[in-house]
Amino acid sequence: MIIDLPNTTTSKVSKKLVTIREEGGAVALGRVLTLIIATELGSEEAAIEAANDASREHPMRVIVLLTEPGNPDVEPRLDAQIRVGGDAGASEVIVLRAYGAVASNEESLITGLLLPDAPVVAWWPGRSPVTPASSPIGRIAQRRITDASAGEIPVEAVASLSDSYRPGDTDFAWTRLTHWRAQLAAVLDQAPYEPVESVEVSGAADSPSTVLLATWLRLRLQVPVKYKSHHRGNGSSGIHGVRLNRRSGAVVLERPIENVATLSQPGQPTHDISLPRRSLRDCLAEELRRLGPDLMYGEVVTRGLKEFDTEVRSNG
């Protein structure tokens, strides 16, 4: 069910939500978090779809806040839309389109619609504020999700994560790495228990995830990491491969073709591993699983990135 509320206010939207619940019982009370999706007008549907999908795992209230920056001359107006039932997965979605000066106080648009006592997660699927934690929406949220790969120059976006980091921040460039990291960690769970002497990581030049993977390995293993980037057209997107050099030989995890990686280790047959690029929905669902700050991510983007940067520069 989709209900349009043109030219409205937050308080009218809130009242309408109560009416819908009383009339149809369509809106359950058991929601456990509010997800705020903040993006620009016109680019919302992909994000809403991902949120609807993720809500099958995790029923929530989704508030989509659409603004049009840099256009103060437009007639100030707030249009809202409420989606429940089949149009909203297991969540309820409130889309707010803020035009003109209405958008100048984002916090006031959101506050009246937050679920009482429940955690708030903010997600910027496109461009994100310079310092997410101190932005009007970021201040309300416990978790703030950005996506470095959505920026114009992703690798620079990674560098800025370092300066703006506050506990509770996270980035999809990091979420996309989880399966890679899990496979690498699993290799080191097994014998032979030899130290890793050096590491090579390669990936597309515009892949922020590759940088984070290299940083994480360097931080945890305390060894030099050789980072090789390829321009597009020369291989697939994202991460291409990782090589951990040990005395008994190298452990190589590579993804030469899409979705399938190969793992080779000395004295072991080569294995195929299903390692598809993760969808927005997957990434979002993983982020919503833990509502506390991701300390490891914090380490990686603060200390890790700085050290890595110095090292890369000193090696020319």
Partner: peptide, 25 residues
């Protein structure tokens, strides 16, 4: 380089709650 033993896997950390344990071969 960090030492690696059966008990100490530097790629795992209590702060890193995303990584699932994968069964060994």
């Amino acid at each position: 380089p960090v030492d690696i033993t059966a008990e100490n896997n530097p790629l795992r950390s209590a702060d890193d709650r995303r990584l699932n344990r994968i069964a060994g071969p």
